[in-house]
Design a protein around this nucleic acid. Structure first.
Lengths: 129, 129
DNA sequence: TAAAAAGTATAGCTATGGCTACATTATAAT
DNA sequence: ATTATAATGTAGCCATAGCTATACTTTTTA
């Protein structure tokens, strides 16, 4: 029953991670390059390249060959939602008493599987603590 | 950095779901059949069949053609760990104030991405509330 | 017991995300 | 300006998890 939802989450999970990273890179460096994404994720550049191609034809990003990456409106929106979720979950885990490193690591995995209802409860908890 | 861990979790995630379901079926019905697993997961029987074949050559289960499924020791151990995690996360989400349905759905996705440290914190929270 | 139904298995397809090896283009350095 | 290096791109491989269609057993039922 719930498993379908989990599978659906998995489909967008990688996409969300990429968009979050791209948004962060655009903010910090002013540009997002494949090599940086690959380094952030700890994967081969060729793998990042392939996924970037997918993100492009799925309409999340725009890029010219050998040039850096930009987010489309669709991409920006998803990046923004992902970022918000990430912060809520991360803060929540820290307030629960976890060290930054563990909180960061777990948030990465958890953020894609948290419903809006649960996010609300986490926010509530964050405010109270 | 943390992304590698998430990817590793994904590799075992499906395996853990299958083993948990098989263990549950063995407990409730006395036997685990492919058709039941497929129904539980909401996937085609052929897909379940294929994964069951993988679980077999990976040493988690034993089965004869057209017969029901049994867990090996290795399979039992992983099923047991998964079950424990599931209960902790599920209880935690309920104590956080979520309804059973949401808690169940989210636990399904979250349980595979929770470190031991976080589980400990959740248990602590569960006892206090 | 023979036929129908249910369950299981297999083949072959798609998409994803890993990888390495190699080709190409851009950028930096000499 | 040419060359070396870095970045990007492409090809081709593997494994996973979905699917449908079809074949084969097993079980049920008439």
């Amino acid at each position: 029953m719930s498993f379908k939802k989990v599978r659906d989450a998995h489909k967008t999970e990688n996409t969300e991670d990429y968009l979050e990273i791209i948004a962060d890179l655009l903010n910090s460096k002013g540009e997002a390059r494949i090599v940086d994404i690959a380094n952030h994720l700890g994967i081969a550049q060729a793998t990042a390249n392939k996924t970037i191609r997918r993100l492009q034809y799925q309409g999340y990003i725009k890029k010219e060959p050998y040039r850096s990456i930009f987010l489309t409106l669709k991409g920006q929106e998803l990046a923004s939602i992902s970022k918000k979720k990430h912060i809520i979950v991360l803060t929540f885990l820290k307030k629960l008493g976890l060290d930054s490193k563990t909180a960061e690591a777990d948030a990465e995995g958890i953020e894609h599987h948290v419903s809006d209802k649960t996010l609300k409860k986490m926010e509530k908890f964050n405010k109270k603590n």
